[in-house]
């Protein structure tokens, strides 16, 4: 079956089992490996992408449901919030192993796009689904606040 959708602004057609997760279509069919596999059961957030700007877990999003969808991945995420988040992530040296960070960044960008000045409570709510086994959480929190400052500045 083929599904037509937009990925990072480009029209794409996926020839894949409709019951297969978007995660593996991105990684293995399209070679877009920035979106990571961490758990496969929506429990870690490593596979987070945006569907019409809303963060979703691509490991639990089936290709068959995506006809006409607009998907954004770490490779294509742009705009002011994304630039601020990436700059804050780099300057505060958030990543350790880095494997979770695509997902962290996608969740953080979605948060800041909705809530430009998040509280710690907002951050907990938006980011709790994103596991970091290196526990870089102190810096993730700080980087989101820093990015919020940049967006205001």
């Amino acid at each position: 079956m083929s599904v037509s959708l937009t990925i990072n602004g480009n029209p794409r057609t996926l020839e894949a089992d409709p019951e297969s997760p978007l995660l593996w279509a991105l990684r293995d069919e399209l070679g877009m490996t920035g979106t990571k596999f961490g758990c496969g059961i929506a429990a870690c957030g490593a596979c987070t992408v945006h569907w019409d700007g809303v963060p979703i877990r691509s490991c639990q999003t089936m290709v068959g449901d995506l006809e006409g969808a607009e998907i954004t991945t770490i490779e294509g995420v742009g705009g002011r919030a994304a630039e601020a988040v990436k700059a804050a992530w780099t300057s505060l040296e958030v990543p350790q192993c880095g494997y979770c960070q695509s997902g962290q960044i996608m969740s953080a960008v979605a948060l800041l796009s909705e809530t430009p000045r998040p509280t710690d409570g907002d951050i907990d709510a938006a980011m709790d689904g994103n596991v970091c086994r290196c526990a870089t959480y102190v810096r993730i929190r700080k980087a989101i606040h820093t990015a919020a400052d940049m967006l205001e500045g």
Binding site: G31, M32, T33, G34, T35, T73, I74, E75, K86, W89, T90, E93, V94, P95, C97, G98, Q101, S102, I105
Partner: peptide
């Protein structure tokens, strides 16, 4: 960190 903050392939 820059690579790891951008989904570098």
């Amino acid at each position: 960190v820059a690579n790891k903050s951008s989904g570098s392939p």
